[in-house]
Write a protein that binds this DNA or RNA. Structure first.
Lengths: 108, 108
DNA sequence: GTACTATATGAATATATAGGAATATAGTTA
DNA sequence: TAACTATATTCCTATATATTCATATAGTAC
């Protein structure tokens, strides 16, 4: 039986890639089709599918097939809260350090 | 300049190892000396030091030298809240799946 | 100074993960 | 049925990370 710590580590590992964080950010607004996700990320369908698979295997997102398309959504809103919490911690740290930052060129 | 998403990914990656999660759990109770941490984990001093270095490099913990010893502590309580939040999500998921679990043999 | 203690670091190896290109699978449409 | 579409998977290579053992560094005590 896997320990809780081990499962927690798997979840953090799944969330520890910029592309997968970008995917979670996209899903904040609600379910999205794969066909909407990978063009928005500017990535290959194949690579995107693998990242979705990592998040899905950890139960962070779930997909349902609707005809040819697959729509993904967050399984538990608290994963988004966790993500936001870390962003907030870092923003404060950076603020304290007097730094500026941005994501994909967009100012925050 | 590193993006926020990239920094978030680094923090998650730092937290994505069972040993480092165990270290954070130990530090919940307050600062601890390295000499207390690695025996409690049952790990080599060298390996423990490297894991501490990963957490330190991400600003999750900080150490201060006191004579020969180095004492580590959490830099921001919210990192612990993030850790607890994920544990809670997983506990609920496992409960819904009707599973039992434990950490190092201790029932929860 | 030497000897000792606690911690960090380096080099080598092993394992894990990511990315790219091609292919497989499942569903649709004609 | 064949052709098409959307997504997932496989294989291969490159890169990143973890572990082990040995050594370096910094502080203490004599």
């Amino acid at each position: 039986m896997k320990t809780v710590d081990y499962r927690v580590s798997e979840v953090f590992r799944a969330m520890s890639h910029p592309t997968r964080i970008a995917i979670l950010d996209m899903l904040k607004g609600g379910p999205l089709c794969v066909c909407q996700i990978y063009p928005a990320l500017g990535l290959d369908q194949s690579i995107t599918s693998k990242h979705l698979g990592v998040l899905r295997s950890q139960g962070i997102i779930r997909g349902r097939k609707e005809g040819l398309k697959v729509t993904y959504e967050i399984t538990d809103e608290r994963y988004l809260q966790v993500l936001e919490a870390v962003k907030e911690i870092l923003k404060r740290q950076w603020y304290l350090e007097g730094k500026m930052w941005n994501d994909s060129g967009k100012d925050r």
